[in-house]
Design a protein around this nucleic acid. Structure first.
Lengths: 189, 189
DNA sequence: TTGCGTGGCGGAGACCTCTCCGGTACGTTG
DNA sequence: CAACGTACCGGAGAGGTCTCCGCCACGCAA
């Protein structure tokens, strides 16, 4: 059975990958800047193997949180169904902030995600798509400025990444989001 | 002459420090992420010596740009004298953006300057003081919101640090600053 | 003059990131 | 069944960050 064999070969890679992810999740939950070295060791594979599966640290972290990023994207749609557009947008921003701050590993990846890089393409993809839907809905409702692009929003809330997740970030995040929110609103003529 | 000798002793340290700064400036102007190793080597001192003078990479970078940071702070006063407060504020933000982007090394230091750390205390000191004066002037003029703190502004423009200094950052920076500016303005009743 | 205290120096060493390439084991093919 | 291809694995090695500690040189006091 050639296909079965091929799948078995694949299966070994898949298993290794799973081990890696598992030990990474464990390591990052303990310490947000765990070394890739220690993760590979804990997974019982060589460091080279880790790097072949996840060429950069961000790849690994993003893979860990892929599901949750998509969940964030989904949340945009859910909120849009249950709330008027402007409220949905505001709630989504809050949720984003909270999410980014509580997942310490993710925030590091977000922080180093500049314009290019794999994170930009893969994580920002779903995120920008979700933001686009939120912006569209608000455009239709006439609540937000009409010339906004998702990147503008992502850039405006970048200050979140400066906050210390272990510290007193909530009031500062609230102030930041409020400020951004006002900036995004349509100026009444 | 004890004091003279002491000064000579000091002088040696000062000279080493100057060498370090000189080769650091040279290295960073070529390549914004030069290794501290290479800087020490170029200065003809051991790596340990570099670290004693500048315990962290940020310390070194900040020291390189200390004068220019103070210049930024001074610019706030100059602008306030020559322009109405709101304009001064806007111009200062633009200048800040341009400055942060053109000094590739500095932006790295700014980027990693979270709430604590030496940069926060030393670089943000002058910067927050300057911002405070700008905010005060605008408060007096009734142009900006009255509950603003310098940190709010610094956080709001943190998106600048995500921009790629080598890329097409200007339009995005302009959009960001405009957005922030609107968010900072006093809401007309 | 001869220790002695001290500020400054240097680099070995621990640990990390990332690359590169030889080894291995499984599946295919003659 | 023997030989080969290929996907996957492992770790040595280059080069970086940062710490730590022995060393030196100089000024001072006896």
């Amino acid at each position: 059975m050639s296909t079965k064999r091929v799948e078995q070969l694949h299966a070994q890679g898949v298993r290794t990958r799973a081990h890696l992810l598992e030990s990474a999740r464990e390591a990052f939950s303990t310490c947000s800047d765990a070394s890739l070295n220690s993760i590979a060791k804990k997974a019982g594979v060589g460091i080279g193997t880790l790097y072949r599966h996840f060429p950069t640290r961000e790849d690994l972290i993003f893979e860990l949180y892929r599901g949750e990023v998509q969940q964030m994207a989904q949340a945009a749609d859910d909120l849009l169904e249950e709330h008027p557009p402007l409220n949905a947008f505001r709630l989504w921003l809050n949720r984003f902030a909270r999410y980014a701050m509580t997942k310490a590993g993710l925030i590091g990846a977000l922080q180093s995600a500049t314009s290019r890089g794999r994170f930009a393409q893969e994580a920002r993809g779903p995120l920008t798509a979700a933001l686009q839907r939120l912006l569209d809905a608000n455009r239709a409702a006439g609540t937000l400025r009409e010339d906004l692009e998702p990147d503008d929003v992502l850039l405006a809330i970048a200050g979140l990444y400066q906050l210390d997740p272990a510290g007193d970030w909530e009031p500062r995040a609230r102030r930041l989001l409020e400020l951004v929110f006002v900036g995004l609103c349509r100026r009444d003529p």
